[in-house]
Design a protein around this nucleic acid. Structure first.
Lengths: 234, 234
DNA sequence: GAACTTATTGTTATTTTCACACCAATTACC
DNA sequence: GGTAATTGGTGTGAAAATAACAATAAGTTC
């Protein structure tokens, strides 16, 4: 959220959106943060966000924030929770609607946005003190992600279109952070038995060991199964 | 939501809370609606709600709306989703934060609030056309309730402190509205095996058939089990 | 070709889920 | 006071899902 100046002088009350943008680099779950250039909380890391324009829907505002920062459109976006403590913003009454977005980290390039030079991926469990109530917002969104990734096929949003089963499992392991990692054989059996993955003809390349099969997520198939009452569950 | 007059004259943008108050009368899941006295949507049924005061937290506003209407305090309240379509309110830009509350219907008395004479319980699947986007809000909250009632022990909030297993099952049946009712024997086995219910010494009274045992929900026990990693699931 | 690294695959025991029917206790009515 | 009516309460077996577990295969590097 970056509301310096406007708040207090223009709105009696205002609403903003804040965007928890998740990415996965093959090892860790990451969140995209920006470093604030002005007071309040100058130099602190914060969630990207903005005031909602007078003629803008909430979802549209969240899409805009995401696109301005990453250049990406049409990505997964989900409203999570609204934060409205009276004093959460030092310059006035601003309630903020928190969104999760899930992007393929390789699609993101630092050069996409005007303020992108101050944006940076942070490993999820190494995020320090954030501006405003953004630590609380991040917590909420992470909890939501942990639940949702098990009950809807949204993990694929964080992976490239073609991925190996090991990559998929690593994704689940780093999102869920369970005391024990998932069992490799059981995980493969379960995910393949859903018939939501299609095998690609080509194989993984550029690795110094046996290359793995590549798979794609079959969204058509998922929608079809949904209609028949299928419930995704890992 | 009842914002006539203030909107447009006072706020450039405003936020409100709307409260989906659920109750259960032994047969059907119900929602408490009020009939609007003024334009817009005069005479239409609507969710109870109000603008959030400048120095009021969102949760506090939801509690206030609930208390003004029902006289009840300290009941279950959960934020669900925020609705912010540009034209959702005909008199100005108002985004609204939707809450669920669960109350014991027998605790509610029509006389509790000033505008209570226009409030009435409606069976959930006989709710007609509501004011604003309140049908959409109700849908969202009902979906949330259906999910949450299976994964957290919140069903008890809708029942009197002492209840029979049949009453509990009827509650689940009417909330979930599954194609088939739950199996009596399996339901009882499952709920009792959680060890969250304690048997009361007295029995059901005033029924023209074999009286059932009464049970209470043991909240202490639940919190203790939670800490040990127990997950409520029906 | 030997060492190294990751990919791939199946079995068994345990637990959970699901389907299913009869006797018990009380009231209402004759 | 007996009989009908109503709901309360209980157990078992089959099927499915879960969980625990290790050896071989296919590449790369040196």
């Amino acid at each position: 959220m970056d509301t310096t100046g406007e708040v207090g002088s223009f709105f009696k009350s205002a609403f903003s959106v804040d965007n928890v943008i998740f990415g996965f680099d093959g090892g860790d779950l990451k969140v995209l943060l920006i470093q604030r250039g002005q007071a309040p909380f100058k130099d602190k890391w914060a969630l990207p966000g903005d005031l909602v324009y007078p003629n803008e829907d909430l979802d549209t505002a969240a899409e805009r924030v995401l696109e301005q920062l990453t250049g990406l459109r049409g990505v997964y976006l989900e409203q999570v929770k609204t934060f409205g403590a009276v004093n959460r913003h030092p310059l006035g009454r601003v309630i903020t609607v928190a969104y999760i977005s899930l992007i393929k980290i390789s699609n993101y390039t630092v050069t996409a946005a005007s303020f992108a030079q101050s944006a940076q991926w942070h490993t999820i469990d190494k995020v320090g003190d954030l501006a405003f109530d953004h630590n609380e917002i991040l917590e909420s969104c992470l909890r939501r992600l942990k639940r949702k990734v098990r009950t809807a096929p949204i993990g694929f949003e964080l992976l490239p279109p073609k991925f190996t089963l090991t990559e998929l499992q690593q994704l689940y392991d780093s999102v869920l952070q369970l005391p024990k990692r998932l069992d490799k054989r059981n995980f493969r059996k379960k995910i393949l038995s859903m018939n939501l993955l299609v095998e690609c003809p080509e194989m993984q390349e550029g690795v110094a060991h046996r290359p793995a099969k590549l798979y794609k997520f079959d969204r058509e198939k998922y929608l079809q199964l949904m209609n028949e009452g299928f419930v995704f569950d890992i």
